[in-house]
Computed example of a mutant assay.
Amino acid sequence: MRGVGRRNFLRAAVVGTGATAFAGGLWQSAFAGPAQPGAGPYGPLGPVDANGLRLPQGFVSRVVARSMQEVADTGYMWHAAPDGGACFPDGDGWIYVSNSEVPLVGGVSAVRFAADGTILDAYRTLSMTQINCAGGATPWGTWLSCEEYDYGCVYETDPYGKNAARKRPALGRFKHEAAACDPDRKVVYLTEDRSDGCFYRFVPSTWGDLSSGTLEVLVGSGPGKVRWERVPQPQRWLTPTRDQVPGAMRFTGGEGCHYGDGVCYFTTKGDNRVWSYDAANEVLGIAYDDDLVEGGAATLKGVDNITGTPGGDLYIAEDGDDMQINLITPEGVVAPFLQIEGHPDSEITGPAFSPDGRRLYFSSQRGSSGVILGNGGVTYEVSGPFRS
């Protein structure tokens, strides 16, 4: 069902969730409809800079690392296929961690920055894991690195490089993509990158300790009221986790996941959607859908990794399409924020803000080469007048 018929059907479903569907700041007015293209808060994209990026006026870029090359003067070689990432405070500076989405060695690398942005160090925090795609930061200062294969696991890693990584099988064995912590309800949301995947949450026995707890799956029939049910066998199974609970909702390729202000936002690449789960009221809605764009072309396609700001702006990276990071404002406007030129066979991964909100980090996973196991990956930093 495409075109106008599908558009009208979806809009009716979204409007049917009602004006009180969402508690979070971004979608308090979700009944008016999903986000629509418009003028972004930073203006149009400028010409291509020396690093191949198009940015709004006032923003500048630099290359932080390139796959299979030394990071600054640290002596550390940056990994291939950089994927999901996050930033962590480190005294007056910060640390950016990045997954490696390659088989056999996978793992996580980190870059340590001084207060002025100078690169101080780079190092490995996880090794010899499989296809580490996205993940999520925890409130207690660790990084959850997710393996993207059918029996994949979540690893809890130390961005500061002091403690050994720990496998967390209690969070389920499935094709993990991303994770987002909800400190209000003391749960971890998880996406599954399959065409018939599910949306999960993990309820730890003790908040801050992911060694034990209950894995649950979202059950429902579409946008609107939903519920959670326990997955009977999350770790050792003959029946995959997604097939263990009747009525579990199916999502076409779960990707990024971000929690903020009472709402968990997650993306699905098969239908180019950004979903909104109102955690307090247990209501699911659609924050963005390229089929629901009215008047003009959809600027956001190939939805993938996602992050957000305290002010409610969402930043969504594209896998392919025209290699943009788009933002969605609290007013429901979607607009391009940046674009990478000359990388047609790559994807943008790992968007994350420094703790002060002044710098945005992300990667072109395969760069201009388009080869995942090669040296094409590029990790960038963009700085400028980001609004809080």
Rank of each mutant, 00 (worst) to 15 (best):
T125F: 02
C264G: 00
N375C: 11
R236S: 06
R6A: 15
A352W: 03
P56K: 04
A179H: 04
V64A: 02
G152T: 01
S221M: 11
G84H: 09
G46S: 10
I340G: 04
E229M: 14
G342I: 06
L300S: 11
A279E: 13
L26T: 14
C153P: 00
W275M: 13
Y189G: 11
P246T: 08
F9Q: 13
N375T: 12
R358A: 14
G308L: 06
E156H: 07
D196W: 03
A81V: 02
P351A: 06
D196M: 00
I131P: 01
P223S: 07
L327M: 14
P82F: 03
A248T: 06
T241I: 12
R185N: 14
P41R: 01
A179Q: 08
I119T: 12
Y361L: 11
G106I: 10
R387C: 08
R227D: 05
V111L: 08
P310Y: 01
L218K: 01
S61T: 05
N375P: 13
V187R: 07
C87K: 01
D92S: 14
G253Q: 12
E255C: 11
Q28W: 05
D116Y: 07
V108L: 10
Q233C: 07
R242G: 01
Q69N: 04
T157H: 00
G370I: 09
P344V: 12
M68C: 12
T252C: 05
Y96I: 00
L120S: 07
S67C: 05
F113M: 08
R168C: 14
T191W: 01
G135A: 06
P310L: 02
R387G: 06
A122R: 10
I306T: 08
P351H: 08
P44K: 03
A30N: 01
L104P: 00
C153F: 04
I119H: 05
P169C: 10
L53T: 06
V226D: 11
V108M: 13
I325H: 08
R124Q: 15
F22L: 10
H176I: 09
D121H: 04
F353E: 09
G85W: 04
W140V: 10
C146F: 05
R7H: 14
S61F: 02
N375E: 15
L45N: 08
G384M: 00
T129E: 06
T252G: 00
W140H: 09
G332A: 08
F174Y: 15
E255W: 11
L104M: 13
G350P: 13
I372W: 05
V154K: 05
A115V: 05
E192Q: 15
T239G: 04
Y277R: 02
M249Q: 12
A248M: 06
V203F: 11
R11P: 01
G46R: 09
V378G: 10
V217H: 07
G18V: 10
S61I: 03
A32D: 15
P330K: 10
P234G: 07
R173I: 00
G256W: 07
G357E: 11
A32M: 13
G213Q: 12
E294Y: 02
V303M: 10
A50F: 00
G342V: 10
G152Q: 03
V71W: 06
D158Y: 05
L360M: 11
N326R: 09
G208W: 12
